[in-house]
């Protein structure tokens, strides 16, 4: 049996790795690499958001009856990150190093404080209330990603 918190935290680390690769490419002004790694990073992040918003959060809300609680805040922060990602896409498309690094700095902070809240609290709550469904939920996420 896999823990939801473990699998979801691993996804955060994978996104972190892609973020770092993207930022390093921007720093070296390798725009081709920056653009392709950015697209990969954006896709991985979006897949993760969708897995949470469409599969995990509804399951958590159903199990706890908390629809206005932590999941609402997390959905709102997902939207903030989507906005930040669009600005980042614009900055990379125009090959503006200052704007790209500025957006990247902002996005990283936003992402990290969000991950912290999820990993320290929400995921642990999920491990408890969704224990019996964890494997089934993770399987659904896998099929969604394909």
């Amino acid at each position: 049996m896999t823990l939801l918190s473990q699998s979801l935290s691993e996804t955060h680390r994978q996104c972190d790795t892609l973020f770092a690769a993207m930022e390093n490419a921007v720093t070296q002004q390798k725009w081709g690499d920056a653009s392709s790694v950015f697209n990969e990073f954006r896709q991985a992040t979006e897949d993760h958001f969708q897995a949470e918003e469409n599969i995990l959060f509804p399951a958590f809300e159903k199990a706890t009856g908390m629809t206005q609680g932590p999941t609402r805040l997390m959905r709102r922060e997902h939207q903030q990150m989507r906005d930040a990602l669009s600005r980042m896409a614009g900055a990379i498309a125009t090959r503006d190093a200052d704007a790209s690094l500025g957006c990247a700095d902002t996005l990283l902070m936003l992402m990290q404080q969000h991950n912290l809240k999820e990993e320290q609290m929400l995921y642990r709550m999920m491990d408890e209330v969704l224990e019996s469904e964890a494997d089934a939920l993770l399987a659904r996420i896998k099929t969604m990603a394909v």
Binding site: L101, C103, L110
Partner: peptide, 18 residues
Amino acid sequence: WFHLQANFPGKGIVPNVR
């Protein structure tokens, strides 16, 4: 940035941290 973005989303006037 965080407070500006949360209070005035989508207005495109919030400067980034740098």
